[in-house]
Every structure is written in structure tokens, then in C-alpha cells.
Design a protein around this nucleic acid. Structure first.
Lengths: 204, 204
DNA sequence: CAAAAATAATAAACACTGTTCAGTTTATCA
DNA sequence: TGATAAACTGAACAGTGTTTATTATTTTTG
């Protein structure tokens, strides 16, 4: 019987509707401005209905996070195609920062809130897209270490080092701390700093 | 007449009372758990009273932020005393990370919320303690560049690079992202990464 | 000292938030 | 058609920051 199927499709449709509304509100009003009630009024349902499709707000945020990683992946496509490990690391770094600067709300959700992590106990499974990206970076680091004969450098440490650098830079930029360093031209400042980071690690 | 003086002292006392209560709640329940109403019940006043002493919640958060910087300064004392610029940078880095890890709530308030920045339009004056610390780092960087004859390195770029590194590392640690890299022994991981960062910039 | 003016404090309300649950409406099936 | 199941919601609960009209207290003045 195709009835139950259609039922499930309907259910999936409303779920999609909720998520699309949530996405729209996120991009318009930011993480703080995203509320269950705003979603409800947007899709013209009662707030209680949303709880029939999602356990709680965190579950919605988590699904949004996954959408964010899909977007981030698009920024990484160029890096994925690069064969030379050092060039690939440069490419990843640039893509990461570009994504962060151009998608503040997504980045905020994906990297700046602990809620999605705590939702399910084992964040390993919960944050698998994030982990996949880190592993890709780590593999690239391993290749780079081998190519440059950098002995005494653990790839996971190097990967974490790189991640911290770009994450910190994006973070400082987003919370407007960079305007302390340089009032205007923050974009140039970011580019320069990112360059300096990569150069100091791989010395050109 | 000493009466107005006493009045002002009384006023200052209640202000102090409010801030102490706020601090206590911050340390017990974190940034999210800190509310005007909780402060009010703690000091046994009505919530409205608090608005006679502070413009809004942000003003309280901002004053707490300043308290946080005073605490951070204590962590930096050792670094302030160091004369060798490279050693001083190491010392600053270690102190920064130590402070961040041992004082999550303070750090969160000082470096992870944009609210205190937006409170007054010119964040330069608003965040003067933060700026002072950055300038101290930048001066140290200048000395280090001169000592190591690292031409082509701008001190403010280098300072920002260092700041991004430690800030990113502390941030990832606090939001429990490091457990992706290494389930246990995150402390060792942080120490190793910090070392690697400093070595890669100054090559031992 | 009493009346007036200034100060201090608050209760109550407003507009929000996430979440739950007892009901009501709607659709399905025998 | 009547019973059952699924979908949906109104209203409430316990919070949040903030404002305003009102009351209580203190100080100043005539």
C-alpha cells in the first residue's frame, strides 16, 4: 500500500518546511534571532506542532549545522582537487577563512556553539562532517610532512595547529576584535595574517 | 558637606553588591545562567532596582569583563617580568592558554561575546584592557623581530597571528572540539600544539 | 517641627523565549 | 456510519530583559 509512503512523504515535507523556515530566519536574524515561535509563525503552524517533528530546538540547530557543512564543502571543492599537499593546505586555509567571513551565521552555528555538540552524548557521531574535514586536513598534513621531510612533526598536531589558526582568525574577525588592530582594511589584514601563518609553518 | 559623599559611597556599595552577585552567578552558572532576576534575588532587591544602578545588562557584563581582565593580568605577571622578547612571547602564550582553560566563564565573556563590544560605539575605548594587552604583545613582537632579524615581518601581523593561534586553540578546547582529535589527554594535546605553534614561528 | 521636594525601591506589566499537555479537529479504516 | 488513530493547537508554565506608575523613605526647606 502506497498510503503509508505518501504519509511519510508528507511528514518529510513538513520537516523540510520547518528547516527551510529555520534557515531563512537564521540568515535574516542570526543565531540569536532564531526561535521556535518565529519558525511556527513563518510556516503558519502552532509552535507545538514543531515538537511533533523535532525533539527540541537543538535537533533543529543540528540539522541546520549539517546544511552548513554542505555549504562549506562547496568552498572546499577547489582544495579537494589540488594534488600537491602544501598547495592543498593553502587552499583549505583560504577556503575556510573565506567561508567563515562570508557566512557568519552558518559559521557561528557550526563552530561557535556548544549546544549541537552536547545534543547527543558522543559528539564523534554527531559532528561527523566536522570530523571528516579535520581528517582530510590531517591526511594532507601527513603528506606535507613527508614531502618536506619535516621530522618530529605529528600530523594531527599540525592539523590542529592549522585549524586553531584559521578558527581563531575567523572568530576574532567575526566578533569585531580585529578593528582593534586595524580600524579599516580588516580584509587585507586577514589575508596578510593567513599568509603569514602558512609561510611560518611551511616557509614558503 | 560629607553627606553627599556618604550617599555616593552607599550608591557605590550597592553597585559593588550587584557586581559581586553577578560574578558569583557567572562562576556558578556560566554566562547563559547569569540573569538580572537571579542577581536581584541574590542581593534581595527587586529586578527594577538594578536598573537604577546600571543602564542595562550589557553594562554589567562589561564591568564583569573588566574584572576578567584584572584576573588575566595576574596570569601575565610572569610574562611582564621577562626581558627576552622570544621568551616573553612564549610566556604570554602559555599564560593566555592557561587563563583560558582555567577560567572558561571569564574567557567566554571577554573574548566570545560580541555584546560587550557593541555596547559603546567605539570599541577602542570600550575594550581598552584588551587593546592594552594586544599592544603589549605587538611591542614584544617588534623586539623579537629585531632580535632575530626577521625582515619582512610586520609586528602587528605577527601579533595577530599569535593571538589567533592561542585564541583558536582555547576556543576549540572550550567548545569540546578537541575531543574529536584526541578523546582523552586534551591537556597534553593543547600543550603540544601551543609548543608547535611557537616553534614554527621562531624555530626554537 | 511640619510641609514639600527629592530620592530610593518596587509591583506589575509587556513582549519575548522553549517546552508540555490536555484537548480538539481531521482523516482513516472496519 | 461509527470507532479509531493521527495531526494539530490553545493555553499554560517557568523563564528572560526592560519599563513605568506607584509607594515608601529620606532630605531639605519654610
Amino acid at each position: 500500500m502506497g498510503l503509508t509512503e505518501r504519509k511519510e512523504r508528507d511528514k518529510a515535507e513538513l520537516k523540510e518546511l520547518i528547516l527551510n523556515a529555520a534557515k531563512k530566519i537564521l540568515l535574516k536574524h542570526g543565531k540569536e534571532g532564531l526561535s521556535i515561535r518565529k519558525i511556527a509563525t513563518t510556516i503558519e503552524y502552532s509552535p507545538a506542532t514543531i515538537y511533533l517533528y523535532f525533539k527540541d530546538k537543538d535537533e533543529i540547530l543540528h540539522e541546520l549545522m549539517e546544511m552548513g557543512f554542505m555549504l562549506m564543502n562547496k568552498y572546499m571543492l577547489h582544495a579537494f582537487a589540488e594534488t600537491d599537499p602544501i598547495k592543498r593546505i593553502h587552499s583549505i586555509g583560504n577556503a575556510y577563512v573565506k567561508f567563515g567571513l562570508e557566512n557568519k551565521d552558518w559559521y557561528d552555528l557550526m563552530f561557535n556553539s556548544d549546544k549541537p555538540m552536547k545534543h547527543i552524548e558522543k559528539c564523534m557521531e554527531d559532528w561527523d562532517e566536522g570530523m571528516a574535514m579535520f581528517n582530510f586536513l590531517a591526511i594532507t598534513c601527513k603528506e606535507a610532512i613527508e614531502q618536506l621531510h619535516l621530522r618530529g612533526l605529528e600530523e594531527r598536531i599540525l592539523a590542529l595547529q592549522l585549524w586553531s589558526c584559521v578558527h581563531g582568525l575567523v572568530n576574532l574577525a567575526q566578533s569585531e576584535r580585529l578593528e582593534i588592530v586595524e580600524r579599516n582594511q580588516t580584509k587585507e589584514l586577514i589575508a596578510k595574517t593567513l599568509d603569514s601563518m602558512l609561510i611560518s609553518i611551511f616557509k614558503r
